[in-house]
């Protein structure tokens, strides 16, 4: 009869010890909490080689590598709970968060690559056999986009330019991974594929109607951080940005070191044409730069498009969202 009691005792012990989360560290230095960088890119390279750890130690700061999140929205939950305090993204998805909270600010912007030889990073795709040849012909069609994110922003821009009212098409809100299967099986007529989804869609024969390069795209990649980290430890965030800039520059000359960083095989490993494409992207990538007050234009423009078409109920006050690292002591 005692085994069951023993199990309960063990369970209680676990509740008290193993499962209780470590609370905030008592040290005064900054701790940069970054989500898992995956298997490619400057941050993955930095994690593997301990570069951030080394450089941050010089200003008395540390780095904590966290887990992966299925979407930007999930990452935002982690930011809200304080498990992540520095994150990469784009202006568009961050706006939804900035509209509801004041706890993150944008401290860095990555300018758009304008070199026409650089690989395209996104596009409005239709199936190869689709009769649609132009954005105008999308009237009455179902188009997959990620809600309140880059896909929706670019679709609104493209429709605006083509003179199509957004209510003349059906926007189907799907995350990129869900949209990929809906698009492959013909459940949506078109899809604004972004980031990893775009080369996958093109590789499977999708036809591109328009790229973001063809539009007045103001939705730039950003780095954002929680406000208390920026205000108390701007020096640590500066080191982070410096490291990122150096590694982006290094990746231009030796891109191979920045792909398949941890694993050469498995779901995250790339090979063949996809690997070549990512190597090309690294060669053309521009380093992130500190954000300045002038960058408010970008935020205002993207927020304006979202506000005009009712994507964001509240308008964002752009002056709350930029943090100038150089202005802070």
């Amino acid at each position: 009869m005692s085994p069951r009691l023993a199990i309960l005792a063990v369970a209680t012990l676990c509740a008290l010890s193993a499962c209780s989360s470590p609370t905030a560290t008592a040290q005064a230095g900054a701790v940069l909490k970054i989500k898992d960088p995956g298997n490619a890119g400057p941050l993955a390279y930095a994690k593997k080689n301990g570069i951030l750890e080394k450089r941050l130690a010089q200003v008395g700061a540390k780095v904590e590598w966290g887990g992966t999140y299925a979407s930007f929205t999930a990452t935002i939950d982690a930011v809200r709970s304080g498990s992540v305090n520095v994150l990469e993204g784009a202006i568009s998805p961050a706006l939804g968060y900035l509209a509801n909270g004041r706890d993150i600010k944008i401290f860095s912007i990555t300018d758009r690559v304008v070199d026409p030889a650089a690989p395209k990073t996104d596009g409005l795709v239709v199936p190869a056999d689709s009769p649609v040849k132009d954005v105008k012909e999308l009237v009455g069609k179902r188009i997959a986009v990620n809600k309140g994110g880059r896909g929706e922003y670019l679709l609104l821009l493209a429709l605006e330019r083509a003179g199509v009212r957004p209510d003349q098409v059906t926007r189907v809100y799907l995350n990129p991974d869900q949209a990929a299967s809906a698009f492959a099986t013909g459940k949506v007529d078109a899809w604004w594929a972004i980031v990893r989804a775009y080369p996958e869609a093109v590789a499977k024969g999708a036809r591109v109607l328009v790229h973001s390069n063809d539009l007045p795209d103001q939705d730039l990649s950003i780095q954002a951080a929680r406000v208390e980290l920026l205000e108390k430890h701007p020096e640590a965030v500066r080191v982070y940005l410096d490291v990122l800039r150096e590694l982006t520059a290094q990746a231009k000359t030796e891109p191979d070191a920045f792909q398949n960083v941890f694993l050469a095989q498995g779901p995250t490993a790339l090979s063949g044409a996809r690997l070549k494409e990512e190597l090309d992207k690294s060669r053309y990538a521009l380093p992130p730069r500190p954000a300045t007050a002038a960058d408010l234009t970008y935020v205002k423009d993207v927020a304006g498009v979202f506000h005009r078409y009712g994507v964001l109920p509240a308008s964002v006050n752009p002056s709350d969202v930029i943090f100038d690292l150089r202005a802070s002591s």
Binding site: C19, S21, P22, A78, S81, G82, S83
Partner: peptide
Amino acid sequence: ISWFGVEES
């Protein structure tokens, strides 16, 4: 998530 964070607990 808001009560326990995103870690193991």
